[in-house]
Design a protein around this nucleic acid. Structure first.
Lengths: 201, 201
DNA sequence: ATCCCAATACGATACGAACAGTATAAAATA
DNA sequence: TATTTTATACTGTTCGTATCGTATTGGGAT
């Protein structure tokens, strides 16, 4: 009834009580709820446990640290997994990726993501989790479109691929973190096209 | 002997024991020393006090928080206050500012600055201090050169000044924070000129 | 098919360590 | 006399771990 499929497909035949899906959902929900009122750094595991009506131990058993809980809570939100439509060319692909990124960062979650990025600066475990779940997927997708676009002559090839990623994404994150008040509708609308101009052939 | 001049020039004639310059120096020195081995977030006021052989109270009396201590410790390091030579034009001014920024971030202090930037994302007081002591001076200087350069026709005027700052500085900070391993000699050398090309007329 | 048990997860609670920030008091210095 | 200094103590919070009794499962024995 509860496990229609896929969930535990690779369990090597275990005994004992299975993981409580109820507690899991309660923890992720509580995490998202608390993040509406406090920062990543202010959020404590104990607060999550209390809000979720769950033993602190249960959280520590299933997640290595706070960052992991929050990343999973974020990605379990509705609308976080919507794929992009098929682009007609690489410029359009880049533009859609930038628009998606800006939309994400402009939402309430943008602040949380900036804080996760921040936490990653001084915590190696947090760094690894943030990289694997957020940065690397983002960068990989962009690098692919950039490489294709350079081969096809859509983009200038005077910059290496990593630099192009920095040139495209850097300004977005800098604005988000250095002067978030200017991360507004106007910026959201204009930046993706401006950015394309920066790297066009 | 200890106060040659300038230091307390604006004190309105006080009585009682004056602030101990010895303790102050000891605190800033201890802070810099500890930052060689730990992150901003790991560094505690108590650890500074212990290392500096100073009462914890003394630190709390003269600085509002950890960020303030660290900012002052950083800016008291030798070579942090060297002014730039006079540029011949605005492009050169921008290039020198970028080179200075990259040089700073490439030093051991770069990591610390990234961590201060990080801490500012979730702590309003830290944000204010980081902004006043680091971000605003940086941004103001660049904005001035950009405005002049746009008036003089050196730079394209299709982007507003704030966007140009983002375009110039964003990639540097993004590389520092997202993939610091690529913040290397090659990048340091090539980026300032690449960046100028991005905004040239 | 049913029963028992080993295995595992659960929530609750307690614990020691670290650190925050404040308070107090006695010594030091102008 | 006024103020800063160091030292110490204190409360409160959170961490991460350990322990404990309870709940829930699958598998093996019957």
């Amino acid at each position: 009834m509860e496990n229609t499929a896929l969930e535990q497909s690779e369990s090597p035949a275990r005994k004992g009580r299975p993981r409580s899906e109820k507690s899991k959902k309660s923890i992720l929900k509580a995490t998202n709820s608390l993040l509406l009122h406090m920062s990543v750094q202010e959020l404590s595991i104990e607060a999550i446990a209390k809000k979720a009506k769950v033993g602190k131990t249960t959280i520590y058993r299933w997640w290595p640290n706070k960052t992991a809980v929050i990343m999973e809570a974020l990605s379990n939100q509705p609308g976080m997994q919507t794929p992009l439509p098929t682009p007609r060319n690489n410029a359009e692909a880049i533009q859609m990726q930038l628009e998606k990124l800006i939309r994400l960062l402009h939402s309430k979650n943008g602040e949380t993501i900036a804080q996760l990025f921040a936490e990653a600066q001084s915590d190696e475990k947090a760094q690894a989790i943030f990289e694997n779940n957020f940065l690397t997927p983002l960068i990989d997708a962009m690098e692919y479109s950039i490489e294709q676009g350079q081969k096809d002559g859509e983009f200038a090839d005077r910059y290496d691929v990593k630099s192009v990623v920095d040139i495209l994404c850097g300004p977005i994150f800098f604005r988000l973190m250095a002067h978030p008040a200017d991360f507004n509708e106007s910026f959201m609308k204009s930046y993706p096209k401006e950015a394309l101009r920066l790297i066009s052939a």
